[in-house]
Simulated scan of single mutants.
Amino acid sequence: MKILVTGTAGFIGNALALRLLERGDEVVGVDNVNDYYDPTLKEDRLRRIQDYAGFTEERVSLEDREAMARVFRQHQPQRAVNLAAQAGVRYSLENPHAYVDTNLVGFTNVLEGCRHNGVEHLVFASSSSVYGANTEMPFSIHDNVDHPLSLYAASKKANELMAHTYSHLYGLPTTGLRFFTVYGPWGRPDMALFLFTKKILAGEPIEVFNYGNHRRDFTYIDDIVEGVIRTLDNPAEPNPEWSGADPDPGTSAAPYRVYNIGAHRPVELMRYIEVLEENLGREAGKNLLPLQPGDVPDTYADVADLKADVGYEPTTPVEEGVARFVEWYLGYYGETAGKVAQ
């Protein structure tokens, strides 16, 4: 297939594009390679896929309406995966307009491109952040998610609503995937594992929010990519039993679905740090701090629907995933491993 993937210089988008190319698909990669974090890392990710004959790079921004319309019109992808977004809960407190531009305006341009060019299926990134103030564990796609705690979370909830509207109005099959704390080699420098590793190697204390009482459903990148591909290969279909009298938030009478994609095994943050310390052979100094605004104490994914519908089965424990990350990190940064620029 010819598949348009946005965010191909990003962590998940790059890993997905590599897997699609390896199985013989054509990939049209969209990314503006912005400086939200180190563009050098993004360029190095792109180098992993640029030599594949099936890869075409389009260096444009999602919010550029004319450019996105041209990309869809010129390449005529059969399916699309939208992984480009302004990410990060904490950054949304500082720069809310970036989330409106990319996650709302940009996503509208993706939806319009799919609508006007006969795309068979759009898979898009949502987030576990949409559960917000929910405390019932594990988080279920059949739960109400109307109480987000950050603009980032609100923008992802908005994406789900926007996609559903296009599925209802235009019959465009759309599937939203609520990612749960993705980690692994080639990861994002603003994520905890990256930040912790850098500081521990530099002999600096790490900042541990909520006094270390977080639990996170840490999900290894390979498990995520496997779930995205399985979802992409199974276009959303209407739920014939859906009823407006008792509406199910996870399905619809339109060809729309939303799924959790996580490891289904929450890990205490302190255990996560302990595993990292073991792999680095160093103990971390810890500054214990209160819960940050916009953060939630725990995440835990109920992935039963994704398992039932596409056979998703995460297999990587944090002990194995963190070891692979540390091996990559030390190899990638070498002698400068403790001095990585933010």
Rank of each mutant, 00 (worst) to 15 (best):
G7S: 09
T8Q: 02
F11I: 08
L21M: 07
D38G: 10
K42N: 08
D44S: 07
D44R: 15
R47I: 00
R48V: 00
T56E: 05
S61A: 14
Q76C: 06
R79A: 14
L83G: 06
R90N: 11
H97M: 09
H97L: 11
H116W: 08
V119T: 06
S126P: 07
G132M: 03
S140F: 03
V145K: 11
D146H: 11
L149N: 13
L151R: 06
A154Q: 11
E160L: 14
M162S: 13
Y166P: 06
G171H: 05
L172Q: 08
F194E: 10
K198Q: 15
K198H: 14
L201W: 13
A202G: 10
P205I: 11
N213I: 00
H214C: 02
R216Q: 13
G227E: 06
R230T: 00
D233I: 01
G244W: 09
P249A: 08
T251M: 06
S252P: 06
Y256W: 14
G262C: 10
H264F: 06
H264N: 15
R265K: 15
P266Q: 08
E268I: 01
L269W: 13
Q292L: 13
P293V: 02
V296I: 15
V303L: 10
A304H: 13
K307W: 11
K307I: 01
K307M: 09
D309M: 04
E313R: 14
T316N: 03
E320Y: 05
R324T: 04
R324Y: 02
E327R: 15
T336F: 12
T336V: 12
A341F: 11
